[in-house]
Nucleic acid binder design. Structure first.
Length: 884
RNA sequence: GCCCGCCUGGCGGAACGGUAGACGCAGCGGACUUAAAAUCCGCAGCCAGUUGGCGUGGGGGUUCGAGUCCCCCGGCGGGCACCA
């Protein structure tokens, strides 16, 4: 059947046809001209506000199906809430700084700004063709100096508030991208973009002190009751609160610069089971040892080269080096333990040093077995014999009572923890401490296409913030990417400026901000995108927080956590008065598609969906050659598998409404959906069908339309249709409220089916009137999902209407019509369905039970049995429990 | 290894603890047509010849009644991963 990809599918020749090519741009213009989606920064209309936001796109070149899904979901919410009487803000912008623009600059010699602007123009036009109810007047890109200048202001405010600091630190260095990465951007020891193994390097970097808010960021997760549970869990885990103790182990023989080492532990109860102390390779004491012990230095160097590399993690082989030093035990007189340098101890967590208790920690056990260190159990599992209990290859981490533990003997684990901490505090060698896994957010990036960090380095004055009145610090127009490294650093003039304090020559900071900073406050800027300050207070007070945020699960930690931090920082400074930026969060699933491979042996090439044709027998062939094609897995659309479908082509062929309808109808929006040609074609047929319903009703009796000329008497068919109509209103409303868009779609199909049935019925008793009502309601209910079609249908129904469907209030169901004339009641015997009876709503129990017993099948099932119990749930079900 | 989620016809999926499989896709039969497409009408969980039996991954439990609640097991998917 090999339908051409540029042509629309055929439709009936003898019936009216919905011409989306003409209609869609026409309605898009009409909405824009009437400003249907505009709201004020500080509205005075008294309506309740609703802020709908989808994660703004990176302008990579073209939109993809993931964007289509994301923005369709958001648009349904926006249009629905608008109809429900809310003043809806629904803005769009561009997350426009980032590495792809630099790569394009390097490869093609085009300025990243030019490349980015071109992409934005392309993608804006694509989004506009989707008919999204966006307020384009609020559009900005994060690469606009007007935007990043305000971001620089925020950076300086954060700096003054003590929320930014510069510190020397071990950083994750991506050797391919040539930049530092945040911990969150290191995945399996590799750079999140380049995939290159990350190296450890010590550099002076700018940090946002997100750890200041660790406790609050964790606690407030409980208040986010409209966030997916798993996102909250992921964040809680990332923040990683743990309770334990910090204590100092003193060296038996104090060194010149070291008396000992601090250790963090969550198991102070197991201190009597200690057998060694282990230092991270990056620990200062390790360095001190290495300074005089070449073998130690060699071991540390080896650890660093492996570092977090895949090999090291996969083998997970414990490696250590005995320094020869020994530390004293805080509780046991005269007991000392060896100090090792161990590859499994992390400098980033706790103090970078641990005490090893092999009996009750699996890692310590593996280490102890390898290096033949002693293993002393100190927690006795319930019921175990203290004389014989020992651990084999598995450390015991369960509950129990302490033994071999001096003053802790006999206590349970929790009591022993408290007692051990109390003793540490009494001895003044340690204290209870809450520790966090969350690290401060390093934001320095050695990149040219980013927001410049607005500080100067002066030899006399040190680090000097750029004065507020000299903002923005703009990027040079002649950024060159002709060599590796940071182009701001090798730009001939940009970084050379006079110190604003002493006037002597100074050097600009050439690092730029992590692009996650750009996206950590854009939602606030949207409230007043023209403001001279980062935000206008009255505007953010009105619009924030975002009521519904929609995007991919891949941002569950990074972007969402940073934004939560940033909002708190802005509140602390006084820019706004909310802590949580996103009151509601919805994470959508991916869009997937079959993948195809040419069948020529081993090196079958990936083929795009446009290059293959489905044959009537179900086989798939190569369009150009006719050769058979191997159909691969259904998986996420990707460039490498070439299984992406271009939204542009789909919209050109079927129209935006069809694409929107299909993407909503296929399955629940939080699951992955499979894009199929058959599915889109089905959606397209529905657009034509539903349009014909409107044509069928027409405008002939529009003067006497709904509400004005309701016939005095309605026949049964008309009443039935009205019931379907009003139940659909209720059902669709409920479905849209709960993000069950696929269910809303199903209900609308049912209404369309009911209207089609009514068209065939003999028109009597006001059926025509009921049908017109049904079609009008269908039109309005469909509008959030297929807005152009709804307008076009309404034009057929009411050519004289003064309002657009986009401006209509949401229809309300008439409560009387939500209950039926009669109800069908299921009748069970012993829980098995045996028949049904029809009754009036809320019929008396005895009448229903009597009718149920006489129903043929039920009577047969009851024959010869004694009824011992009769269950009656009004209007729903009867169940006879029988004996004998 | 730990944590989370999911498992319903050929497929995507519906289903306040109350008639499982709505709705769509694919399929089958029919009408229209020279024919096809489109459109319209109808059928459709499985087994048994129509009033029967079996059915929501498997096993148990609670209940008058379980896809839904509880326990155990299995499978699939995702996240985290030497965090002391």
């Amino acid at each position: 059947m090999a339908v051409s990809i540029t042509e629309s599918p055929p439709v009936a020749a003898d019936v009216p046809r919905y011409n989306f090519r003409d209609a869609e741009p026409r309605w898009q213009r009409a909405w824009a001209e009437r400003g249907c989606f505009r709201v004020a920064d500080v509205p005075t209309d008294g309506k309740p506000k609703y802020y709908v936001l989808e994660m703004f796109p990176y302008p990579s070149g073209k939109i993809h199906m993931g964007h289509v899904r994301n923005y369709t979901l958001g648009d349904v919410v926006a249009r629905y809430k608008r109809a429900r009487g809310f003043s809806v803000m629904h803005p769009m912008g561009w997350d426009a700084f980032g590495l792809p623009a630099e790569n394009a600059a390097r490869e093609r010699g085009v300025h990243p700004a030019t490349w980015t602007r071109d992409n934005i123009d392309t993608m804006r036009a694509e989004l506009q063709r989707m008919g999204l109810s966006l307020e384009w007047e609020r559009e900005f890109a994060t690469c606009d100096p007007e935007y990043y200048g305000h971001q620089q202001k925020l950076f300086l405010d954060f700096l003054r508030a003590g929320l930014v600091e510069r510190k020397e630190s071990w950083v994750n260095w991506d050797p391919v991208d040539g930049t530092v990465l945040a911990n969150e951007q290191v995945i399996d020891g590799r750079g999140w973009r380049s995939g290159a193994p990350v190296e450890k390097k010590q550099l002076s970097q700018w940090f946002f002190k997100i750890t200041d808010y660790a406790s609050d960021l964790l606690a407030a997760l409980d208040t986010l009751d409209r966030w997916p549970e798993r996102v909250r869990l992921m964040q809680a885990r990332w923040i990683g609160r743990s309770e334990g103790a910090r204590l100092t182990f003193l060296l038996e023989t104090p060194e010149q610069c070291f008396e000992g080492s601090e250790v963090y532990t969550t198991r102070p109860d197991t201190l009597f089971g200690m057998s060694f102390l282990a230092l991270a390779p990056e620990h200062p004491l390790s360095a001190a040892v290495a300074a005089r012990d070449p073998k130690a230095a060699a071991f540390i160097a080896e650890c660093r080269s492996l570092g977090t590399s895949e090999a090291a993690i996969e083998t997970a082989e414990k490696q250590g080096y005995d320094t020869g030093l020994r530390v004293k035990h805080p509780f046991i007189e005269n007991a000392t333990f060896p100090v090792w340098i161990a590859n499994f101890v992390l400098m980033e967590y706790g103090t970078g040093a641990i005490f090893g208790c092999p009996a009750h920690d699996q890692r310590d056990l593996e280490f102890a077995r390898k290096y033949r260190l002693r293993v002393v159990p100190v927690v006795l599992p319930p019921g175990a014999d203290p004389a014989t209990f020992d651990v084999g290859d598995e450390a015991y981490v369960g509950p129990g009572s302490l033994f071999n533990s001096g003053f802790l003997d006999g206590m349970d684990v929790e009591a022993a923890k408290r007692a051990a901490i109390a003793e540490l505090e009494r001895l003044r060698v340690g204290h209870g401490e809450v520790n966090w896994r969350l690290r401060d957010w390093g934001v320095s990036r050695q990149r040219g296409w980013g927001c410049p960090i607005p500080v100067l380095h002066c030899e006399a004055c040190g680090v000097v913030p750029v004065p507020d009145d000299q903002l923005p610090v703009t990027l040079p127009d002649d950024l060159m990417f002709d060599r590796p490294g940071n182009p701001l650093d090798y730009h001939p003039t940009w970084k050379h400026v006079a110190c604003p304090v002493c006037g002597k020559p100074a050097r600009r900071e050439t690092d730029t901000c992590d692009t996650f900073v750009d996206s950590s406050w854009y939602f606030a800027r949207f409230c007043s995108p023209q403001a001279d300050e980062p935000v206008m207070r009255a505007a953010v007070d009105h619009w924030m927080p975002v009521d519904q945020y929609i995007g991919g699960i891949e941002h569950a930690i990074l972007h969402l956590l940073y934004s939560r931090f940033f909002t708190r920082g802005m509140k602390q400074i006084g820019y706004l008065d909310v802590e949580e930026p996103f009151a509601g969060l919805f994470t959508q699933g991916m869009v997937t598609h079959e993948s195809y491979r040419s069948a020529d042996g081993q090196n079958g090439m990936w083929l795009s969906p446009e290059e293959v044709a489905k044959q009537p027998d179900g086989s798939v062939t190569h369009r150009a050659t006719g050769e058979p094609v191997v159909v691969g897995r259904v998986e996420a659309m990707s460039k490498s598998k070439r299984n992406g479908v271009d939204p542009e082509a789909i919209i050109a062929r079927y129209g935006a409404d069809t694409a929107r309808w299909f993407i909503l109808s296929d399955n629940p929006p939080d699951r992955d959906m499979e894009w199929t040609e058959a599915g889109v074609a089905g959606a397209f047929r529905f657009t034509q069908r539903v349009f014909r319903l409107a044509e069928g009703v027409g405008s002939a009796d529009a003067v006497g339309s709904v509400g004005r000329a309701k016939p005095a008497e309605l026949g049964e068919a008309a009443r039935d249709l009205r019931r379907v109509t009003h139940r659909t209103i209720a059902a669709v409303s409920e479905a849209l409220d709960s993000f069950a868009f696929n269910v809303a779609v199903a209900r609308l199909y049912e209404l369309a089916n009911a209207i089609a049935d009514a068209e065939r019925a003999i028109d009597a008793g006001g059926l025509a009137w009921a049908r017109r009502e049904a079609v009008e309601m269908l039109t309005r209910l469909i509008a959030p999902m297929m807005p152009h079609l709804a307008e076009e249908m309404y034009l057929r129904l009411r050519p004289d209407a003064a309002q657009l469907v986009a401006e209509f209030p949401w229809p309300l169901a008439e409560p009387d019509l939500l209950t039926a004339d009669t109800v069908t009641i299921a009748v069970q015997v012993m829980g098995k369905l045996r028949g049904t009876v029809t009754a009036l709503p809320d019929a008396p129990r005895d009448d229903v039970l009597a009718a149920a017993k006489t129903e043929t099948n039920v009577a047969r099932a009851l024959e010869g049995k004694r009824i011992v119990k009769q269950i009656y749930v009004p209007n729903r079900i009867v169940n006879f429990v029988v004996a004998g």
